[in-house]
């Protein structure tokens, strides 16, 4: 019974195993990025960037059909153009970075949907918007795993300036010039992980596996190391449980994964040990000293 529910789907079907491996790889790379986005109050930036990837992937699709590398490459380029373009415009005009990013991603989204619709079918459009986690071939898995590995490595390399730029940017500026390059590397990581997530979850939900685990982790850990561990753990659990739920209830898998993460979020808001609602509501005697 337990075996049938929790293990059999993966033991019996190769596409389920692949989906599981893919979501675990995503769960290693994206959530730490999400934690930093959240701590820098850039939670919605991930969403905007995810939309910005669309036209690049769509142009890749137009040129080479459903080719993995054309679409991933196109997405990567489009994402980087938007990230750097928005940064550049905000620095050279009076528009703040979030405003120029909003302009960029809306244009990108409209452009991307237009390109896909002109060239492909509604099925293609659905693939773009929601991904196809149950149809991942070897190259796709390699791409996602590669992105996860690179982003963990780069994160380790830029860890100090990244943390310092969040806590005390003035101090970082006074001791080092590493802040700017670290910020750009970080934006590149955001784009890369969204491109990876895009393959599995589509442009609309890729950001879900990045941000939801990050927000969840805030309710369970007090320091950043613990938060990143919690975020990775909850993303992996969401991936596994989401696939199971979608298998047994015959629901779409991508949204299933994100919905499980959503459920974990709801539980965390209510019961999370760090600032969860029930702990705030329960009257606790204060300490002596």
């Amino acid at each position: 019974m337990l075996y049938d529910t929790f293990i059999a789907p993966f033991a019996e079907f190769e596409f389920m195993r692949r989906a599981l491996v893919g979501t675990f790889a995503l769960a290693l790379g994206a959530p730490p990025i999400g934690v930093f986005l959240m701590l820098r109050r850039m939670s919605l930036i991930g969403d905007a960037m995810a939309h910005a990837i669309l036209p690049g992937a769509a142009i890749g699709f137009m040129v080479a059909g459903l080719s993995l590398f054309a679409m991933a490459g196109g997405g990567l380029i489009a994402g980087l153009i938007v990230a750097l373009g928005a940064g550049l415009i905000s620095r050279s005009t009076r528009i703040k970075e979030d405003a120029s990013l909003a302009a960029f991603f809306l244009i990108s989204l409209a452009l991307g949907v237009t390109i896909v619709s002109v060239k492909g079918s509604n099925v293609d459009l659905l693939h773009f918007l929601f991904g196809s986690v149950l149809a991942m071939d070897d190259p796709t898995l390699m791409l996602i795993a590669g992105i996860a590995s690179v982003s963990l490595l780069v994160l380790a390399l830029i860890w100090r300036p990244l943390v310092l730029e969040c806590v005390d940017p003035g101090f970082l500026r006074s001791v080092s010039r590493a802040g700017g390059p670290a910020h750009i590397a970080f934006l590149a990581l955001v784009v890369m992980n969204l491109v990876g997530g895009f393959q599995a979850l589509g442009t609309l939900l890729a950001v879900g596996i990045m941000m939801l685990p990050a927000v969840i982790s805030r309710f369970w850990a007090r320091d950043i190391t613990g938060m990143i561990g919690m975020a990775i753990g909850s993303a992996a659990v969401s991936g596994y449980a989401g696939l199971l739920v979608s298998y047994h209830l015959n629901l779409p898998s991508g949204p299933g994964i994100i919905l499980v993460a959503g459920a974990l979020y709801a539980v965390s808001v209510v019961a999370g040990p760090v600032g969860g609602l029930i702990w705030l509501a329960l009257p606790q005697r204060h300490l002596e000293a």
Partner: peptide, 23 residues
């Protein structure tokens, strides 16, 4: 960058989850 500088208003994000030791 070798001059130690304590600004009047430090741009410290006090909500960031970091401890005194690391800081």
């Amino acid at each position: 960058q070798d001059i130690a500088y304590l600004p009047q208003v430090a741009e410290i994000d006090r909500s960031f989850p970091i401890g005194v030791y690391d800081m």
